[in-house]
């Protein structure tokens, strides 16, 4: 017998649609503005007349960035860092989150506190820099991957997810004579696709957007990742009193907008792939087995 629904449901549904839609609109507007500016002529930008569509359509902002010849290399560097970094990170993080999610692990509590401790305590840039140097990682793409390879943050997310998995799956594995390796690789990982995907997204995004590590560790022009490359274009444009500035008839604002668009577009293309993992009912089949 169904109970009467009343106001709750319709109101709830309306809000559920409105909230994200409104949020999306107030996000889209400035983004449209930024991309419009990136395609506009410098005089239109400086006059502040660009709103949602380009005025004086002009690709010179983009050619300014893409023509320097270093763009392609920087892009390739970033791709390498993102792919290798994300794979390594997700793998190692999952590999440590799993044991820590097992109550029966002796010394588990110790490790938990250890990771929490390292999450909060850092000695800062100098010791990190010195360490990377001592390890011989200076000016290497690995210096962009290894120092930040595992985040306690992501580890805890995975751990919490593993903890919530039903025990029956593992118990049946042990009954069949398998060990923890079998559990982990054959069952736990496949069942955690959603959580792994979000952690992969976090790592991936961080590897893609980070430029502080590159600023510290990379000295060669051809090892720069994309974000550093773009950042420096903007920073250079801000140098004052420089009478030999290479910024000719391109507006600094326009170039800045172009760099934003260039760094965001890959993200836009990637996320839909990740989203596939966020579909409901992933666990269903496994438990029924």
């Amino acid at each position: 017998m169904k109970k009467p629904r009343g106001f709750k449901d319709p109101a709830y549904v309306i809000v559920s649609y409105l909230f994200p839609i409104i949020l999306a609109i107030i996000i889209l507007i400035p983004f449209l503005n930024v991309s419009a500016k990136s395609f506009s002529s410098s005089s239109a930008i400086v006059s502040g007349s660009v709103f949602f569509h380009p005025i004086g359509f002009d690709l010179s902002n983009y050619s300014y960035i893409l023509d320097t010849g270093l763009f392609g290399k920087a892009f390739a560097n970033s791709v390498f860092v993102v792919i290798v970094g994300t794979l390594l990170s997700v793998m190692t993080t999952a590999m440590v989150a799993y044991p820590l999610s097992k109550k029966e692990l002796k010394c588990g509590k110790f490790f938990n506190y250890l990771y929490l401790f390292t999450m909060v305590f850092t000695a800062g840039m100098i010791p990190d820099y010195l360490l990377v140097r001592k390890l011989g990682l200076s000016d290497s793409l690995w210096s962009l991957i290894l120092p930040g390879m595992i985040w306690t943050y992501n580890m805890l997310i995975l751990k919490s997810y593993f903890e919530a998995l039903p025990q029956e799956v593992e118990e049946s594995v042990f009954v069949d004579g398998g060990g923890y390796f079998c559990c982990f690789f054959n069952f736990v990982l496949p069942l955690s696709k959603a959580s792994l995907a979000s952690v992969a997204l976090f790592y991936g995004v961080s590897y893609w957007t980070d430029y502080t590590k590159a600023m510290l560790y990379i000295t060669s022009q051809d090892k720069k990742p994309l974000q550093l490359f773009l950042y420096e274009i903007i920073a250079q444009g801000a140098v004052s009193g420089d009478m030999s500035s290479s910024f000719t008839l391109v507006s600094a604002e326009g170039v800045k907008c172009a760099t934003i668009v260039l760094s965001i577009v890959p993200m836009l293309l990637v996320y839909p792939f990740i989203q596939r993992f966020f579909t409901a009912g992933m666990l269903l089949g496994a438990v029924k087995e």
Binding site: T92, T93, M95, V96, T118, A123, P127, D128, L131, P147
Partner: peptide, 23 residues
Amino acid sequence: PLYILMLPALLYTIVFKLLPLYG
């Protein structure tokens, strides 16, 4: 196996997180 699984992360933590604390 659980301890083996934790090994890479532990190594990482010691090298990149604990060592710099000397600073």
